[in-house]
Design a protein around this nucleic acid. Structure first.
Lengths: 229, 229
DNA sequence: GAAATAGTGTCTATTAGACAGTATTCT
DNA sequence: AGAATACTGTCTAATAGACACTATTTC
């Protein structure tokens, strides 16, 4: 059998969450070369005889300590020559959406890990290793687009959440203000989007909000439009 | 430097076109093992120092003889252990949408190439090599979804086309009948979707249709809904 | 003229967006 | 009471879908 062209394959994760009403992305400080000291997406090499999604789940668990309840989907694969100075390294990027987690634990090859505000990262205020700035931008755009026509916003919320929490997700990811009244009617009026649990919760002043869990619907017909005022 | 885990990286293409008002996919008959004699997606190994999209464009040109005017976008990457008996092979799948082309030329390692009706392929009537049946299914679903919220249907048409041609694309990809009158109003009424060229063309009986070219808009607001009757 | 396709007009039920108003809590 | 948040109702302009009608061609 002829020798086949060889490359290394990695997975990189764009892990997003909402903290303090703002979108954040998980970054690790690289402890080893190349790009030692720079910030990078969590990730690592795909092991022999390991499926790509298994590698992504493994890295996600290593970085966040959480194994379940996090939405994970493949984003895009990047393989430009020279994107990694170690040689021909192709990376399969994944998008993960998580409810607000504790501060992350550093991985074995990372000096530290923390949540960065997406505003700062997207503006280029954080020096990112490799082509990770482009990967973060693609992940952000995917998340923004998917909120329109899917019920994925609930992936940013804990298992039980209020309509206001869900609205805060849209406002944080899209960066726009949404009319609470129309949003409430739209969300509760879309069959299968959310289901009431029966419970309520009071957060500070104001009438207690009803709690909902995610409904069975994945795609929204019709979609929520990003152009809301 | 430590030795990095190694794998082979390939690109595979889901090339779709409309022929005789039906969606077709380009398949090649494998001339060599593994899966010699079975049908497979056109593709091949990514060369050293070659970017992924360059490899996809190269394979597309080799199989179709066409280098320009074909929409190409990354679909998804597949890397399950055992998906290729030759070892650890990760493939980056691409979706290509083409206007009706001539019969394809066989590549160097393919015994033959032809357009297959998507109906037959999706129904499992064609024995496909590797995990290519799943890749075709993912490509079909991507194409169906993208027609809703993008102007991508024009990628199936020649540079100048009629509204009826564009409608035939939607009907072939979605497998539904669409009201010609509402479709016409919707398409011509969406700014930037299509632009009249000024020319007309008569195809058989009936009033000659105006010709259009693709407009500058990529995303449709609001989208066309698949649930049209 | 008959048949066929292109394109326009119009009606109706539904929806998005704006916003008034009611309900229930905390301070 | 006053402020804050949750939730409901209502109005209006725009839209989707249904379908009648006109326009222009071939046979």
């Amino acid at each position: 059998m002829p020798r086949l062209p060889a490359a290394s394959v990695t997975v990189d994760l764009v892990v997003l969450t909402i903290r303090d009403r703002a979108l954040h992305v998980l970054l690790v400080e690289r402890g080893i070369e190349p790009f030692a000291g720079a910030w990078a997406l969590p990730g690592g090499f795909v092991l022999a005889d390991e499926d790509l999604d298994a590698a992504a789940h493994r890295e996600l668990a290593e970085e966040t300590g959480v194994r379940h309840g996090i939405h994970l989907e493949q984003l895009r694969t990047y393989g430009a020559p020279g994107r990694d100075p170690r040689g021909h390294v192709v990376t399969v990027a994944w998008l993960a959406l998580a409810p607000d987690l504790d501060e992350p634990a550093a991985g074995s090859d990372a000096a530290g890990a923390r949540w960065w505000p997406m505003d700062a990262v997207a503006a280029g205020d954080v020096a990112l290793a490799f082509d990770h700035a482009a990967i973060v931008a693609d992940g952000l755009e995917r998340a923004r687009a998917k909120l329109e026509y899917s019920s994925l916003a609930a992936a940013f919320c804990p298992p039980e959440f209020t309509v206001a929490q869900l609205r805060a997700v849209y406002e944080a990811v899209w960066g726009v203000a949404i009319d609470p009244r129309n949003f409430h009617r739209k969300v509760t009026g879309t069959p299968g989007f959310v289901e009431p649990t029966g419970g309520t919760v009071a957060e500070g002043a104001g009438r207690p909000a009803r709690l909902f869990r995610r409904g069975p619907t994945d795609t929204l017909h019709p979609p929520l439009t990003r152009a809301q005022s």
